[in-house]
Design a binder for these strands. Structure first.
Lengths: 224, 224
DNA sequence: GTGTGTGAAACCTTTCACAGCA
DNA sequence: TGCTGTGAAAGGTTTCACACAC
């Protein structure tokens, strides 16, 4: 392929990113942030992969889907690759995000700094419980779900973190979809279906513990 | 292979369960619990897969790794398959579990009913912060990490839910390992390394949002 | 007819190995 | 020398398609 001799070129690829590769990009980025705070200037594919249990060839293949970031004989420039990956992942600009469901988990997520750090701005809080509506948490007022539609417009909300009970999840997700949301991070332990225009990532905490139990029972290699 | 004509036989397979299959077993189980509460007696592989976006052949292959659970012409008996999967996953008996790190996230996990429901018993709470030690939460007293070793013995603790800050995660994980823990569910947004005898499953919440952003940006199919 | 269990084919992912560049 | 980018080989996973059972 034609390579540019100067600085690396990031691209959205041809729309064909292997699923498995996408999942590792975030890991690389997390590691690069760490290297950067440690003052590292460059890193090789084997060094980058080592701490994550990923082979050097795998790292190079993954990155190659998005452009030519490396320098033969040198490796990758930490700051440059970090910025490129942010751009690929879409976190080079902030994402306006709503939190729906202000129960135990919702409140914890509200206090979790990791979202803002990665470019996600919690811009609105919603709950169906009238007893919660109007309460102030972390400088924001909990609103009724009835205000979802108007707030999507007003605050340009794009993503929703769904922390409602399983029985309510599908219904609320559909409402968010109609309101124009494009992505849902679902914490409810149930399958949620939405149209093609909305992406969903689900995190079922109980399910993760179950997976751990399975690995402990059978001697599955976790890669250490 | 030789089949028994009577009821299905569950097995730990030959130790070779495809990684991908293991990840789906929990989904099947979750769906089966739902079907069971709905009063369904039997379910076919296509019905079971449909709601999860999984093909019928895939469902049959996955289940076949662990035995012959199905009845030709009928499908699978819901209650029987549910019990078999619980046995395969190891959640047919309770797992004694400790929660380490009683911050925002830790407290939320403490209030989350999904763990106990699936067979995980929170049997001890630990935190390094002296200001928290001695406090009572959900009927349990927060203990100093110094008591971890004795509590592992006293309460037969097997798993740890690690909800500590990233900087502390590695150190605490090693301590849990030395104490005899066999599995760690890690919520700290960092790589944690332990010996072969300890399994780790990591859940990085920020990373999940990043994956969602990536899917929204590029038009990745989430399977709907 | 319905629906499982399973070889074989198709597809996807990872590893290997090496040309080429600094 | 050190290291990337990448075809080709190896390994794993999913889908197909059908014999067999109820």
């Amino acid at each position: 392929m034609g390579r540019s001799s100067a600085s690396a070129r990031s691209a959205s690829s041809d729309g064909t990113t292997p699923k498995a590769t996408a999942g590792r990009l975030s890991l690389y980025l997390r590691q690069l942030e760490l290297l950067w705070t440690d003052g590292r200037e460059t890193v090789s594919s084997s060094q980058l992969g080592e701490s994550l249990g990923i082979t050097d060839a795998q790292v190079r293949k993954d990155l190659a889907y998005f452009g030519q970031f490396g320098y033969p004989g040198i490796g990758y420039r930490v700051a440059e690759l970090r910025d490129s990956l942010k751009s690929v992942l879409g976190t080079d600009r902030p994402w306006q995000t709503a939190l729906i469901g202000i129960g135990n988990l919702g409140r914890a997520l509200l206090g979790y700094g990791g979202f803002r750090e990665r470019g996600f701005v919690l811009a609105a809080l919603f709950d169906q419980d009238a007893a919660l509506v109007g309460k102030k948490l972390h400088g924001m007022t909990v609103q009724s779900l009835d205000e979802l539609e108007s707030m999507v417009a007003k605050r340009n909300l794009e993503l929703v973190i769904l922390a409602v009970p399983a029985q309510a999840a599908q219904q609320v997700a559909e409402r968010a979809e109609r309101a124009g949301i494009t992505g849902i991070l679902n914490f409810a332990p149930t399958e949620v279906k939405v149209g093609q225009g909305v992406k969903i990532v689900s995190v079922d905490l109980g399910l993760q513990l179950e997976q751990l139990a399975f690995q402990v029972r059978h001697g599955a290699d976790s890669g250490g």
